[in-house]
């Protein structure tokens, strides 16, 4: 650490202490005011530490990052242990263990089957040994096989059959705007969202858009000639969609920033109420 870093760290530490003491004093009379004031100051410090990354990588960011990694890894470990293992597995596994962890035992004639994932889980832990590491592939195979089968039929239905049938749509008329003949169509040329022309144009754009988009995703045929042109229209429509998606997200992201700034100024500095 060079001199400048030391000075900056010292100033930040001093500010931290001031904030801690100030909050503890303002909360005096409340239970655990010293701990609460420390935690609130810590939250503000960590918020600023993460924001400092916008300037560049620095010791404060590194501290917040490493702390976050350690704390969150342990958090999920504890959650998983208490809610899944103790909350759901142990009550089905054995009466003795349920008694030890003070959870109600759920008797069932199929409870023995819950020993299988325990054995598979232990096989997974065999990775840590040199000679029996290959055993860990069995539980992995179970997971990959089961989910591959599940995804295979699930996506064939939701992303293929359902989407294909959604493309079947009338291009000249629909239930709310039955086809009234060319005369009526031409005499009613307006761009109102409810007009027949708008509906028809929209249906054509969707239909051709889907076809061109699919053609872009053809891999085993050269994209030349008409096929190439359709594929090019396909990528244009894809890009318009990605642009729209980008624009759509901007507002949501900015509101998140507003939320953090509110925390700093309202909860920590108490400048705004």
């Amino acid at each position: 650490m060079n001199r400048t870093t030391l000075i900056v760290v010292a100033i930040v530490a001093a500010l931290f202490a001031v904030s801690w003491i100030a909050h503890a004093v303002s909360m005096s009379g409340q239970k655990d005011n010293v701990v609460d004031a420390f935690m609130l100051t810590m939250a503000a410090f960590l918020t600023l530490a993460i924001f400092s990354f916008l300037y560049r990588d620095n010791p404060f960011y590194k501290f917040a990052e490493h702390l976050f990694v350690g704390v969150s890894a342990a958090f999920w470990m504890c959650q998983g242990f208490w809610s899944t293992i103790v909350g759901n597995l142990i009550p089905r596994l054995s009466e003795g263990l349920s008694g030890f962890f003070q959870v109600p035992y759920q008797a069932s004639s199929w409870n023995f089957a819950y020993w299988i994932p325990v054995i598979l889980g232990l096989m997974l832990l065999m990775r840590l040994t040199k000679d029996y590491g290959w055993l860990s592939r069995w539980p992995l195979a179970l997971i990959v096989g089961t989910t591959a089968g599940l995804n295979f039929v699930r996506y064939l239905r939701s992303d293929f059959i359902v989407q294909v049938s959604a493309t079947f749509m009338p291009l000249l008329s629909n239930e709310s705007h039955p086809w009234e003949g060319f005369g009526a169509f031409l005499s009613n040329l307006n761009l109102a969202a409810t007009g027949q022309l708008v509906t028809i144009v929209a249906n054509w754009v969707i239909f051709l858009g889907v076809i061109c988009g699919i053609i872009y995703f053809f891999f085993s045929k050269e994209h030349t000639g008409i096929f190439g042109r359709a594929s090019r229209v396909g990528i244009w429509i894809l890009m318009i969609t990605f642009g729209a998606g980008f624009g759509y997200t901007v507002m949501g992201r900015i509101s998140l920033l507003v939320g953090r700034i509110t925390f700093l100024f309202k909860d920590w500095l108490q400048i705004i109420s």
């Binding site: 995804n151 064939l156 992303d159 989407q163 929209a202 969707i206 988009g213 872009y216 894809l238 318009i240």
Partner: peptide
């Protein structure tokens, strides 16, 4: 834009991804 070209492209991508997932699975 959100209701028409976006919908068309989304559908094309979803069909593609669906087939990719199905093929790989």
């Amino acid at each position: 834009l959100m209701n028409v070209p976006n919908m068309a492209a989304q559908r094309a991508i979803v069909i593609g991804i669906g087939l990719g997932i199905v093929g790989t699975a």
